[in-house]
């Protein structure tokens, strides 16, 4: 959705490069297992797709002659370190196994939960949030939210399916969107363009 928006409008107005780069980092850390494990064709295709789209978005925002001029660097002020450092620390302490790949995987789970924050902060500062941006954020929130339903199903049907790190992170990630979803639903009902209160 985001790539379509950027390509169609030749603009990344209202999009946080910080959030996009954090997602690229999340996918790198999580999908290292592309090199040493195979689950299914679907799984592999989606992992490669996520990596490719994340990097393509970052490339457009940083290097495309036209698109990069629409990036509002002054407003996108969230500091990487405030998200990366606590997640790295937590991953070192709270993990299933203390190995490089497992710690990086756990780090990616924690980081994904909070990676939307720069985007949410940027949107709060944006007067006119365009529909594609609002829809993109809503879809991103719904994506992990729908996982919760799947986790409940798997918990009920699969033995040994206990995933506290993933579950708590996923619920926290979805909760971060609660406020956004509230205003998104209000504006959608009133058929108005999304506006977040300052």
């Amino acid at each position: 959705v985001l790539l379509l928006k950027i390509r169609a409008t030749r603009s990344c107005r209202g999009i946080s490069l910080k959030t996009q780069e954090l997602y690229a980092l999340v996918f790198i850390c999580r999908y290292l297992d592309l090199f040493y494990s195979y689950i299914s064709l679907y799984n592999t295709v989606m992992k490669v797709t996520y990596l490719a789209t994340a990097f393509s978005i970052v490339r457009y925002m940083r290097f495309d002659k036209v698109v990069r001029q629409t990036y509002d660097k002054e407003q996108d002020t969230f500091r990487y370190i405030f998200l990366i450092a606590p997640c790295a620390l937590l991953a070192l302490v709270l993990n299933h196994r203390f190995s490089p790949t497992e710690v990086l995987w756990t780090f990616s789970i924690y980081l994904e939960a909070v990676a939307i924050l720069p985007q949410l902060v940027l949107m709060q500062r944006t007067q006119n949030i365009d529909n594609l941006t609002a829809n993109y954020v809503a879809l991103l929130g719904a994506y992990r939210g729908f996982y919760i339903l799947n986790w409940i199903y798997r918990f009920a049907t699969e033995k040994h399916y206990r995933q506290w790190i993933v579950w708590i992170s996923g619920v926290a990630q979805t909760a971060l969107y609660a406020d956004f979803f509230y205003y998104y639903a209000l504006c959608w009902k009133a058929n108005q363009r999304l506006q977040l209160p300052a």
Binding site: D33, S37, I39, S40, N43, M46, K47, Y50, H96, R97, E102, W105, Y147, R154, E158, H160, Y161, R162, Q163, I165, V166
Partner: peptide
């Protein structure tokens, strides 16, 4: 491993 089950998720 306890974490193996989640590795089929994206």
């Amino acid at each position: 491993s306890r974490s193996a089950a989640a590795k089929d998720e994206l």
